[in-house]
Design a protein around this nucleic acid. Structure first.
Lengths: 264, 264
DNA sequence: AATATACGTATAAAAAATATACGGAACAAG
DNA sequence: CTTGTTCCGTATATTTTTTATACGTATATT
């Protein structure tokens, strides 16, 4: 049996258990009952199921600690983002000021999102009142949106611009939400989006101005042991990459070595 | 009845429904059956439960679209991060290159996390082999860790440093994970962490070099309508703030106006 | 010794979910 | 027009999951 064979609810509980073992080193029935509001009998059942998934280095119950303790050679069975990890490690009570920095809250107007989702789903073109950041002017234009994209903080969308005759990335926040969002059929097939269908392979290394010891720390922090870190993205998103990975900042830890492109 | 009264599994399904209505403008039974692997009868039951939570502007079934359509004045009943929103809007099939930029993958060694979690939970001091970024040297030192923190990308920890005689922020990635992590009792009560227990109230505005129209777009993008955007964080995390919010970058959209501090 | 807090197991009952069936609505194809 | 397909809701019997309760063991504390 694997995680995939489990029902969604139990799978989540077992993933949480796995994360407790991986990042805390211990887990108790109480962790499940408090987190998911389940009974202790069900929590016991979940531990039994979790242990049945583990073939090597299984956690063992320690009567002194009154907890299941992970093996020193524990291998996680589920991936974790840093947000997941922090969610397991943070010990806050709910009402105090958080130990996490708030993200810059980005606003996406549901009216804009809905109009774009509808146009994408039904493959129609859309008339938007769009504010250009360079000129500061808001003007109507027709676009054929093809896909939402996400740079890690903001949602953008990829669209064919009838004004420019090419594919562009657009910011939904620059669309006037009070507009009436006229739509129409796309009469002729859109041209091929070459940038979207091209993979950029980016090679990064610790910045050249770092010492050997500092570079080793950067490698450890970004989890790579060789000389280079390899990242694959769609070429259409490359514009956002340097900013999102902090490569243009003063004191950047990583720098780009080279970029290759591959047609998908 | 509210969301809080529901079991965890159903609550998640109803939150997902709410997000479909908010961001897509439509929802179908299929959205639930495909996302959560439940039966259509259960999905029908979830729609019924969701509609029972909505007192005004309820979605209505549109036989033409064969979908439930959100009211133009729909009000969400659950909050969404941009990641949640993108998860609802993205239409990718699983095997293709994602439409989202990958995050810089940060590595946290589970051995380090476990040692820190144990020290924090049991209020003990810990000996760590720590690499200083400025000197590049790795040296052992004793710290009393008090809390994990998260800047939005990396996990850090707050600790009293016996070497410096004050509280500092530390990076777990700079700890040598092969160390044996000696621990000991904290003999005397630690001094009060003033920075941790102080709130910084930061006021931001669109950068002064933007035009009025550009500033309006920035306001819309960050979701504030007045002159200033107010952010509250722990003073201990203020060091990370400018970087995380991109205030030091060339072309930054926001700038800091003033900062106030409040003892908690 | 008694108590508190952790564990597992067992059982009856309740809740949630599934499998199956039926009828209705809307649309497309023949 | 009829038929088929895809969506909906509802109903019912059944299955699965979960809870409530009870009991016993282990460990630490009072």
């Amino acid at each position: 049996m694997t995680l995939d064979n489990l029902k969604h609810a139990q799978r989540q509980r077992l993933v949480f258990l796995d994360r407790c073992f991986t990042w805390r080193g211990v887990a108790r029935r109480r962790d499940l009952t408090e987190r998911f509001g389940i009974s202790t009998a069900q929590a016991a059942n979940d531990f039994r199921t979790y242990l049945s998934l583990i073939t090597q280095n299984a956690p063992e119950y320690d009567g002194h600690l009154k907890a299941y303790v992970a093996s020193p050679n524990h291998q996680p069975i589920a991936a974790s983002s840093m947000l997941d990890v922090f969610g397991v490690l943070d010990i806050a009570s709910g009402d105090e000021l958080p130990a996490a920095l708030p993200r810059a809250k980005r606003w996406l107007d549901p009216r804009v999102a809905t109009a774009l989702y509808d146009a994408i789903s039904n493959q129609r073109k859309l008339r938007i009142a769009y504010t250009s950041m360079s000129s500061g002017e808001t003007a109507p234009q027709w676009v054929a949106p093809t896909r939402f994209t996400f740079d890690g903080e903001s949602i953008h969308f990829r669209a064919f611009s009838y004004k420019r005759g090419e594919y562009r990335n657009f910011h939904p926040a620059r669309i006037e939400p009070e507009d009436n969002f006229e739509t129409d059929e796309i009469e002729m097939p859109l041209q091929f989006d070459r940038e979207w269908n091209t993979k950029s392979v980016i090679w990064l290394r610790p910045s050249a101005n770092l010492t050997t010891a500092q570079a080793a720390v950067v490698r450890r922090e970004f989890g790579f042991s060789g000389d280079l870190l390899r990242i694959e993205i769609r070429q259409a998103l490359e514009f956002f990459f340097d900013h999102r990975w902090g490569l243009t900042e003063p004191g950047a830890r990583l720098e780009r070595v080279k970029t290759e492109t591959i047609i998908l």
